[in-house]
Amino acid sequence: MRQLTHLERLEAESIHIMREVVAETSKPVMLYSVGKDSAVMLHLAKKAFYPSPPPFPLLHVDTTWKFKDMYALREKAAQDAGMELLIYHNPEAEERGINPFDHGPLHTDMWKTEGLKQALDKYGFDAAFGGARRDEEKSRAKERIFSFRTASHGWDPKNQRPELWNIYNARKTKGESIRVFPLSNWTELDIWQYIMKENIEIVPLYFAAERPTFEYEGGLFMADDIDRLEKVMGTKPEITMKSVRFRTLGCFPLTGAVESTATTLSEVVQETLLTTTSERQGRVIDKDEGGAGMEKKKQEGYF
């Protein structure tokens, strides 16, 4: 008899969830955001269906404002997994030139929330895997692993299906879809430990390096594309080279960098464990609408 470790238990649970979705839905897709959680989720998918490739495509709902390093890894990861990669840009956001500086919350709403809805409708996916974890944010702590969305992609926190044992009810009526969160029970530390244990490739931005940075509204950001920044900001931001890394990855003008010298995985984990601020603090998205920011976004269809 051998005691399974917590990582083995979490891995087994996530794999079980993914297999249920494949067995019980007609057209699943995996949302892939190129972050570390997506990397872990993709790795688990490879394990779940080995020796078959994961029987669904990857979908990146892109804002065109991601870091260059993310775009590079995106193509490679899909290829390594033998999976089709779908990339979706909301045509309206593209046409109107929606960007994080001029449009504030509308940027997230148009590119991500609306973009995601459009992409799911366009391809007719009835289930979408997402890498969200319950430890990230308070309203996530109460979301089911199988989370139902109405035909208009809304989430009703008061009307969730009870989820008992490891039995998931994947039945839905036409037009409804499911968001499935196989990493629900993982914590940030679990993710890092698993990345180390399994040697999973992640975007280099998670490690400290000398990078061009600028300060904006009290935060430290990376000038990943200076020309483009200048175009939308009106002025060229003042660039300072600093050794920084990122705890979480999103659009480069919305994702705060932290000054760091952690260049190896264990140093990154060390910093994570010793840090005193929560992971999402670097992201602007949770802060609007008072304390209920994420909950409100989810009701509107954000992942």
Partner: peptide
């Protein structure tokens, strides 16, 4: 141990139960 020897710490914590 986190501050002193992170690798030793991680080794210790790889094998926790749930």
């Amino acid at each position: 141990l986190i501050a002193e020897d992170i690798d030793a710490y991680l080794e210790q914590h790889q094998n926790k139960q749930l």
